[in-house]
Amino acid sequence: MSTQATTVHQTKWWSGGKSPFNMEYGKLMMWYFLMSDAFTFGAFLISYGSIRFSQNFWPDPNVVFNAFPGAGHANLPLAFVSVMTFILIISSVTMVLAVHAGHKGDKQGVIKWMIWTIIGGLAFLGCQAWEWHHLITGEHAVLVDGKIEMIGQNMRGNPWGAVVNGPEVTAALTNTSHETLMSLMHSANASVSHEKIAAMSDAELRAALSTAELHVREKGPVAFGGYFYGITGFHGFHVFSGVIINIVMLIMTQKNVFQNKGHYLMIEKAGLYWHFVDLVWVFVFLCFYLI
């Protein structure tokens, strides 16, 4: 659409009887809904910023998000989240193509690209589920009240505080329970078998553990977990609802609902929503994983 054509009509467009934006009613509503939703996410992220700025210490994302499925304990910062990001970008692209096919009235094209988009969405959700699971169950050695405990990242505990020095860890080891020592041994030395560890006494365990390799940390700010799960969860919920909407759209396309209507505008609206989800991820990615 050339801009000249619009400016010619400009004066008339606002005078009633037609849409001043050359836009259909429902799509306009979708846009404003997305704007409102942007304020919801904006408020979340800004509260996160506010709390983060009120803390002296905040965990480094490269330390928190360094795992990759199947890679064991390898230190791969940001690798997995970049996969998630690309999944979302690609699914956004397939959505664009679906919308484009819709404009041409190409039913088969719409179906094809919608299926790809849905797969992308589901893949993203799967990745997120794995990441959450890993963070919650992945336990880390943390110095609490002079002894070492194994805690995962959840709403009440944050194992990503500052690294503790050798002498303090040695002192803390003497107060640490047998179970914790065993799991410490296991995580530090994966080659040693379970039976062997179980056979060792506390003193033996303590001697076998080298304090430098333990990566014992203090507890970090609790708000980190809440915001991370809260915001990525809320985003995940959006992805989930987006997938549901896309599935509904897919079924409706299959049943020729749009073909009978003569246009595929509904696909376009679903597309807007899907891109918005992608857009939000861009900012979530920025706030939690990059800075």
């Binding site: 005078s15 009887g17 849409s19 001043p20 934006f21 009613y25 306009l28």
Partner: peptide, 12 residues
Amino acid sequence: ISTILNLRTKGM
């Protein structure tokens, strides 16, 4: 919002 913007009658 959408009604006021989009569905005004002719001349309004």
